[in-house]
């Protein structure tokens, strides 16, 4: 049997398969060297980078909950200067045989544009920028950009002015109509969209009566959010014509195939990596097996293939 073609096109970049890692769950790549075969992955997305170094939130920052986890890391990162210059970050990422997406964020519109223009000057080895307008864990910026159509449009526009690197906008699920946001960011120059980011959530220790997360609230990820993600991806796929990177609770190839059928061109694995760092590789193998079982030669034949009742 010939091997099915797993490659997908994300703007100007062809990925060997549709599986990438989700931002914030794969560090800056280096942390998994020795454990994960980068050259088998479609791509990786690195932790959010801002113009300034950021401490992030107080600890504890994560808590396991039923069917998922809550995190409130608060986007700790070394800042753009160190990200560009230090051998553990961009110089290391450039050596990898996989597509590298850089997740970016800021507190103001200008912050977003600044990171983008700095990376424009250093664009070698960067397949795309993922604009994070949907982080529930920072007080300023973050999700407030992702839950206002006006601000979302402006921020994407500002980044678009600063760079011609392909742009992915990461959408927040915490909105009434996510399709409107997808249309808005695409109209403002985003080449692709990714969804979903985490849901604001809370867990309480009943013995101490304290929230389990220092920041009180955090973002919910993992298997529990998967059905919501799939519906949102379906809705967005009906609204825009750009590639969609789907994520939210993918733990298996079967999960990933659901996302592809709902309309995602690529999928990102996040929380599942903590459970098993081999999850992305297993998902890739499982998708290939599925295509073989159904004698499908090209993965693109299942993208958006859901047959709605």
């Amino acid at each position: 049997m010939s091997k099915p073609d797993l490659s997908v096109q994300l703007c100007d970049r062809k990925l060997r398969n549709p599986v990438v890692t989700a931002s914030g769950t794969f560090g800056y790549g280096k942390e998994y060297s020795g454990l994960v075969r980068f050259e088998q992955l479609g791509g990786i997305t690195v932790k959010g980078v801002s113009p300034f170094p950021s401490h992030g939130n107080n600890t504890p920052r994560t808590s396991e909950v039923d069917f998922g986890m809550i995190n409130s890391i608060g986007l700790q990162n070394p800042g753009i200067d160190k990200f560009i210059a230090h051998p553990d970050y961009l110089p290391f990422l450039r050596t990898l045989d996989t597509a590298v997406y850089v997740n970016i964020w800021g507190k103001t519109m200008e912050d977003y544009a600044e990171v983008a223009s700095r990376l424009q000057a250093e664009r070698e080895g960067i397949a795309g920028l993922e604009i994070n307008i949907s982080c529930p864990n920072i007080k300023e910026g973050g999700m407030s950009f992702g839950t206002s159509l006006e601000l979302a449009g402006k921020v994407v526009n500002a980044v678009r002015q600063a760079t011609d690197i392909p742009l992915i906008t990461k959408l927040s699920p915490n909105v009434n109509n996510i399709a409107d946001f997808a249309r808005c960011v695409v109209d403002n120059g985003s080449d692709m969209v990714s969804l979903i980011n985490t849901f604001p959530s809370m867990a309480i220790d009943i013995y101490t009566r304290k929230p389990k997360i220092a920041a009180n609230f955090g973002g919910l990820s993992g298997p529990g959010i998967k059905p919501i993600s799939i519906k949102m991806i379906y809705e967005v796929s009906q609204a825009v014509d750009v590639p969609i990177i789907g994520m939210g609770g993918i733990f298996s190839a079967a999960d990933a195939i659901e996302f592809l059928l709902a309309g995602a061109t690529a999928v990102a694995v996040g929380t599942a990596i903590f459970s098993d760092p081999q999850t992305p590789i297993k998902v890739i193998q499982g998708i290939a097996d599925y295509l073989n079982d159904y004698d499908i030669k090209d993965i693109n034949d299942i993208i958006g293939g859901v047959e709605i009742n």
Partner: peptide, 28 residues
Amino acid sequence: DMPMCCGVGACFTCVIKIKADSRDGWEY
């Protein structure tokens, strides 16, 4: 022994304050 999540450095769950020449004199 800090509560951990990934265990390999990827998620920034398990941080403690270490002296650094940053504004606050420390970094996570």
